[in-house]
């Protein structure tokens, strides 16, 4: 056991846990940010995606201790049901989610993409989304929503 200090969603938080505990368990169980989901625990599906220093990062394998001193953002930090971020709002309006298990991770990746550029190329969009799997087949709606976000961003 060791005290691990993390910076999550703009706050300093700490937890006493075994040093090898992957980040996702700390975020979900100790800090109650349940947006990131366990899908494979193998860095294959993207359900556990969060942002670390602005970069989409799978949280299911690497230990929380590795992220000390980094800025961690989870989907909860971008908005809430009453006041969603522009990206979340467009995703909701386009009804992109079916079961929604993959969605929070995708929101993280797309948020990061649009912070870097207002006009991502189709290639960049697909590269970003390719780190995510979805089983319900919501892909086409997510792609359409992302294209719409790009249009809105240009205007």
């Amino acid at each position: 056991m060791a005290l691990i200090n993390l910076h999550v969603n703009g706050k300093n938080m700490s937890v006493d846990t075994e040093t090898d505990t992957p980040l996702i368990y700390v975020l979900r169980n100790d800090f109650d940010f349940k947006g990131a989901k366990l899908g494979c625990a193998l860095e294959q599906c993207g359900a556990c995606m969060v942002l670390v220093d602005g970069e989409p990062t799978n949280s299911c394998v690497r230990a929380a201790a590795e992220f000390e001193g980094r800025q961690i953002e989870t989907v909860e930090s971008f908005g809430n049901p009453e006041k969603m971020s522009d990206i979340q709002q467009i995703f909701a309006e386009e009804n992109v989610a079916q079961c929604g298990y993959c969605t929070a991770g995708i929101v993280c990746s797309v948020t990061s993409l649009f912070r870097k550029t207002k006009t991502p190329s189709d290639e960049q969009i697909k590269d970003t989304l390719n780190r995510h799997l979805c089983r319900c087949g919501s892909h086409s709606r997510i792609l359409d929503a992302v294209y719409r976000i790009r249009e809105v961003a240009i205007r």
């Binding site: 940010f33 349940k34 947006g35 990131a36 989901k37 989870t74 989907v75 909860e76 971008f78 908005g79 809430n80 049901p81 009453e82 969603m84 979340q88 709002q89 995703f91 909701a92 309006e93 009804n95 989610a97 929604g100 298990y101 969605t103 929070a104 929101v107």
Partner: peptide, 16 residues
């Protein structure tokens, strides 16, 4: 219409 639960899903608040 925006489906029931959609806003919660987008913001990580939907309870699974």
């Amino acid at each position: 219409h925006i489906a029931k639960g959609m806003a919660e899903i987008m913001t990580g608040k939907y309870q699974f």
